[in-house]
């Protein structure tokens, strides 16, 4: 089970959270302006990386707020958590070096 650090409540067990899928996928501002391909990309296509993955979690049984987690999908190590709306931190999978 993951130990997830909620940016608002601190470290809590995974059971308190619900998963919200890949982060930083913005809903198109003008959906009617999109063609089918672009709409399908927004709805369905995911990067699904083997490595660092930015994802949304919600502290369902806590503060109830959405936030973002940067997790290594090979080891499940959580590298960083940060509030929704913030940019993805530029970290490597050990959480130390800044990536260029």
């Amino acid at each position: 089970m993951l130990l997830i650090i909620c940016p608002h409540c601190g470290p809590r067990a995974e059971l308190e959270f619900s998963y919200g899928g890949e982060a930083h996928i913005a809903r198109p501002i003008d959906p009617t302006g999109l063609d089918d391909e672009a709409w399908a990309t927004f709805l369905y296509k995911r990067s699904n990386p083997r490595g660092l993955h930015a994802e949304r979690w919600r502290h369902l049984h806590g503060c109830g707020r959405f936030f973002n987690v940067l997790r290594d999908t090979i080891s499940d190590t959580i590298v960083a958590t940060y509030p929704a709306g913030q940019k993805r931190p530029e970290l490597s999978s050990d959480g130390k070096e800044t990536m260029r």
Partner: peptide
């Protein structure tokens, strides 16, 4: 609940 390539999951 989450995507992973780790070939293990939670108890």
């Amino acid at each position: 609940a989450y995507t992973s390539y780790s070939q293990r999951g939670a108890l």
